[in-house]
Simulated assay, not measured.
Amino acid sequence: MGNGRVSQVLARQYDRISERLERGIGGPQLRTTLVGDLTGRVVEIGAGTGRNLPYYSKADHVVAVEPSSGMRSQLMGKIDSAAPAVEVIDATGERLPFEDEEFDAAVSFLLLCVVDDLDGVLTEIHRVLKPGGRLSFFEHVRDVGRRGRTQDLTSPLLRRVQFGCRPNRRSIERMQALGFEVQVSDPPVPIKPRPPFSGPYFTGTAIRR
């Protein structure tokens, strides 16, 4: 989740709540696409309850960054079933406790819509990636036209009732502005049923130039 304000109650229920989303996005296949080919040393920002861990089939070492104590407690219970070695870190995406150019890859999964400082998180990811390293992401961004304008209007309310989610984030544009070379899925990832105010959703890679 990447949000330290997640309550203990939500953390305990998060996996159950996520099942509906999993069915709507084809969860196992999407997660395999997202992390299955990553190699070397990988950092996942906002790892939540660790739902991606079983799909790291080629990574040597995964560092799971999660600021919510409730989420971390759920995540710790899944480490034994994970393929690579997993290290769990209490930190936020805005202040990653790592050296420059430490990681071969980074992962974000529905993270960038909830972080307080989008540019700060992307700058930190850029810093800790090796040159040519990639951020592998599944995120939703602001739409265009009337739907985008509706997202601008509803974002302040939705942020309060949907755990900090901001549907009008321009995350891909900010990746490009901060020095990443970005490729996204075309067409966007289909979501069934489509959320009324969020989307489009994309998988993609952002390469540190």
Rank of each mutant, 00 (worst) to 15 (best):
residue 62 V to F: 00
residue 149 R to L: 11
residue 137 F to N: 01
residue 129 L to Q: 00
residue 122 L to W: 09
residue 2 G to N: 07
residue 38 L to Y: 07
residue 156 P to N: 01
residue 149 R to E: 08
residue 174 R to Q: 09
residue 187 P to F: 02
residue 154 T to Y: 04
residue 140 H to V: 00
residue 36 G to P: 12
residue 176 Q to C: 14
residue 99 E to M: 13
residue 111 L to M: 02
residue 165 C to P: 08
residue 168 N to Q: 09
residue 113 C to A: 10
residue 171 S to T: 13
residue 15 D to P: 03
residue 75 L to A: 09
residue 122 L to N: 11
residue 110 L to D: 06
residue 208 R to G: 03
residue 149 R to S: 06
residue 119 D to N: 12
residue 24 G to N: 10
residue 108 S to W: 03
residue 128 V to G: 03
residue 85 A to S: 14
residue 188 P to F: 04
residue 3 N to L: 11
residue 51 R to I: 14
residue 73 S to T: 13
residue 53 L to V: 07
residue 149 R to K: 07
residue 138 F to G: 00
residue 118 L to H: 09
residue 6 V to T: 04
residue 168 N to W: 09
residue 174 R to C: 07
residue 22 E to T: 11
residue 206 A to K: 03
residue 100 D to W: 00
residue 33 T to H: 15
residue 194 R to F: 01
residue 21 L to V: 08
residue 186 D to C: 09
residue 6 V to K: 01
residue 125 I to S: 02
residue 201 Y to H: 13
residue 209 R to M: 13
residue 161 V to H: 11
residue 37 D to S: 15
residue 30 L to G: 06
residue 71 M to G: 10
residue 126 H to L: 03
residue 131 P to E: 07
residue 191 I to P: 06
residue 180 F to E: 08
residue 1 M to V: 14
residue 149 R to P: 00
residue 159 R to T: 13
residue 159 R to A: 13
residue 180 F to I: 05
residue 145 G to W: 08
residue 164 G to K: 04
residue 36 G to N: 12
residue 191 I to D: 01
residue 181 E to S: 15
residue 108 S to I: 06
residue 157 L to G: 13
residue 90 D to V: 10
residue 70 G to Q: 02
residue 51 R to A: 14
residue 37 D to P: 11
residue 4 G to I: 04
residue 38 L to W: 03
residue 109 F to P: 04
residue 45 I to N: 00
residue 104 D to Y: 02
residue 148 G to Q: 05
residue 136 S to V: 06
residue 40 G to P: 07
residue 37 D to R: 15
residue 114 V to K: 08
residue 15 D to L: 02
residue 48 G to D: 03
residue 185 S to K: 02
residue 6 V to C: 01
residue 156 P to E: 04
residue 152 D to H: 10
residue 63 V to E: 03
residue 167 P to H: 03
residue 145 G to P: 10
residue 119 D to Y: 04
residue 46 G to E: 01
residue 53 L to S: 09
residue 98 F to H: 08
residue 133 G to W: 01
residue 130 K to Q: 12
residue 114 V to Y: 06
residue 175 M to V: 05
residue 98 F to L: 06
residue 72 R to L: 06
residue 140 H to W: 06
residue 195 P to T: 00
residue 170 R to D: 12
residue 206 A to M: 02
residue 109 F to C: 11
residue 2 G to M: 07
residue 32 T to A: 14
